[in-house]
Each structure stands twice: as structure tokens, then as C-alpha cells.
């Protein structure tokens, strides 16, 4: 990641439509963008497309970006919204995999330390779409249930329910995972 000063210069160049600088910005934030999109979309192909769409939005609207603010949160918002739009177009949120009530089991934290990105993606894929969205939005990206309700067009209470179930499912899956790993 570039330091703040060089990032400001980079953005200023991008505002002038300099293609080389846009490429530089792209490459410097490629991993960041792909990481966010893949959490929501679950596979690299879709994530790359959403990330690229987000970059295009950035290049087109970078004039509106106030350089006194941090670039990353602004960009993160674009990435999340684009991923949600992408998902919204291609799926129906109404589907849900109902989980039976499970009793959370305690998992040793050393197991969590060792799980890789691919393990996490596999775990996430085991969640249904809505649970994955809500978990990502709330736990990782810091959105409130109210914001999530607005973004996903669901009641706030549903957001809470999806989050609880996502957590339960993950606990259950991690237990299985840790047993399997052992």
C-alpha cells in the first residue's frame, strides 16, 4: 500500500485521467479490492469482475472524492456496494438454509489462527447467501443492523437473526473443521 502522501499524489494524477497512474492505483489496491469482493461473492471470477467494476466507478467518480478523507474507507464502500449489487442481480435472497438449533461448542483459538483464506472461503460458502452477507457486513466491515437492513432491503430484526445463525453455523463448521484437522 502506498503511504498517505504518495497516495494523494496518485489520486491527483488519476483525477487528471492519467492511465498509467490509474494502472498504478489499480495494482496497489488490487489485493485489497479482491479480498473484500471475494468475501461477499465467494469465488475469484465474480470477485474480480466486481472489483474491476468498482475500480471503474472509482476512476469515473474520483473527481468527487475529497482528498482530505481516507481513500480506503471510501473505496471499501464502493467495493461492498458493487459486490452486493452483483449478488443482488444474480441471486434471490429469499432462499435460506435453515439451521437446526445448535449448541455452540468451544473451539480452541489456536485452530482459528491456523485456518487459511481458502478454509475461510470454504466455511463461508457453507453459509447461505444472506447469512454470508450479513456476517461480512456486520462483523468484518462494521455496518450496523440498520444499515444492513437498508442495503439488503430486509428488516433490521432479520439482519440480527441472519447474523446469529451465521455465527452458529460457523461455530459448528469450525468444530467439524478442527476435529477434522486434528
Amino acid at each position: 500500500m502506498p503511504d498517505n502522501e504518495s497516495l494523494i499524489e496518485l489520486i491527483a494524477s488519476c483525477k487528471k485521467g492519467n492511465l498509467r497512474q490509474q494502472e498504478l492505483l489499480y495494482k496497489q489496491f488490487y489485493g485489497y479490492a479482491l479480498g473484500i469482493c471475494i468475501r461477499y461473492l465467494g469465488n475469484r471470477e465474480d470477485a474480480l469482475e466486481a472489483a474491476n467494476d468498482s475500480f471503474i466507478k472509482v476512476f469515473k467518480s474520483i473527481d468527487s472524492f475529497n482528498q482530505e478523507n481516507d481513500f480506503k474507507p471510501w473505496f471499501r464502500k464502493i467495493l461492498v456496494n458493487t459486490s452486493l449489487d452483483y449478488k443482488r442481480r444474480s441471486m434471490r435472497f429469499s432462499e435460506a438454509i435453515e439451521l437446526t438449533d445448535t449448541i455452540p461448542q468451544s473451539i480452541h483459538t489456536s485452530v482459528i489462527d491456523k485456518i487459511s483464506a481458502q478454509d475461510i472461503l470454504d466455511l463461508m460458502k457453507s453459509l447461505n447467501e444472506m447469512q454470508r452477507m450479513v456476517f461480512n457486513l456486520y462483523e468484518i466491515d462494521g455496518y450496523s443492523h440498520k444499515e444492513i437492513g437498508s442495503l439488503l432491503n430486509i428488516p433490521e430484526s432479520s439482519s440480527r437473526t441472519y447474523l446469529t445463525r451465521a455465527k452458529q453455523a460457523l461455530q459448528q463448521l469450525l468444530t467439524t473443521h478442527s476435529i477434522y484437522k486434528r
Binding site: M1, G31, Y32, L34, G35, I36, I38, R39, S106, I107, H108, T109, I112, D113, I115, S116, A117, I120, E139, I140, K167, L170, Q171, L174
Partner: peptide, 16 residues
């Protein structure tokens, strides 16, 4: 374990 998982996810996907 929830917090651990969150941190791990954030760390892994921060620069993917």
C-alpha cells in the same frame, strides 16, 4: 473464538 475468527478473516482478506 468469534473475535479470533473475525480478526483472522480481516487479516487474511485485507490484502488478498
Amino acid at each position: 473464538s468469534d473475535e479470533e475468527l473475525k480478526e483472522q478473516i480481516s487479516a487474511v482478506f485485507e490484502d488478498y
